[in-house]
């Protein structure tokens, strides 16, 4: 496996980290060895998080998967897990960041792993998709651009996807993290 890793990948930690917005098209062209790497990512992440749950004495089942070219780690269990989600998912985002670093530490490759806890992302995804759709429809009807509130890269991607499904509008992100937000325009 390690012969597929390139030395340049190790140095990429300082690149701008908004991997969720890089589109999944490239990732879907993954080869078999990429699949192996993603399975390995999940295993490393699972160990890292399981030991954390053990230390905290939180109940949680860890499920590992590979979806759309990235490793997905889901934790479900008791009420304690809400603490690992936090207000507006901020603890979840931080834990995902640390888990990606722990994976990169072992593989030498930057990870795009997605962590979900207590199905927070699934619920948030549905809310955001609805927000994207209703905003796009309003912009298509009124013609006035709408700037949404600041969101994480994950949240923005869900909104962009929902807007893209509505005819006559398009969306862009503007501003700097953590104030980066989606703007929806009517197409000229």
């Amino acid at each position: 496996m390690s012969e597929t890793l390139q030395a340049t990948d190790v140095e990429r930690q300082d690149e701008d980290a908004a991997p969720e917005e890089t589109g999944d098209g490239a990732a879907e062209r993954s080869s078999g060895s990429t699949e192996d790497l993603l399975v390995q990512e999940g295993d490393i992440a699972g160990d890292y998080l399981e030991q954390l749950l053990d230390l905290l004495d939180y109940d949680g089942d860890i499920d590992l998967d590979v979806e759309a070219g990235r490793a997905v780690v889901s934790i479900e269990g008791g009420e304690d897990l809400e603490k690992l989600v936090g207000p507006r998912g901020n603890v979840l985002e931080s834990l995902q960041e640390l888990t990606r670093l722990a994976v990169q530490q072992e593989t030498g490759v930057r990870s795009r792993l997605m962590l979900d806890i207590a199905q927070w992302r699934a619920g948030r995804r549905a809310e955001l998709a609805e927000l994207g759709k209703t905003t796009a429809e309003k912009v298509a009807a009124d013609g006035e651009r709408v700037r949404l509130h600041p969101m994480t890269p994950f949240e923005r991607k869900v909104v962009h996807d929902a807007v893209a499904a509505v005819a006559g509008v398009h969306s862009e992100s503007e501003g700097e993290e953590p104030q980066r937000r989606v703007v929806v325009f009517r197409q000229a």
């Binding site: 300082d14 690992l84 603890v91 985002e93 931080s94 960041e97 640390l98 670093l101």
Partner: peptide, 22 residues
């Protein structure tokens, strides 16, 4: 450098998780 991260990003993530767990 690894623990602090670019612009303090990793240290901030560690603080956020610690705040979350009590």
């Amino acid at each position: 450098g690894k623990v602090i991260g670019r612009g303090g990003r990793t240290a901030t993530a560690l603080r956020t998780v610690m705040a979350g767990i009590g």
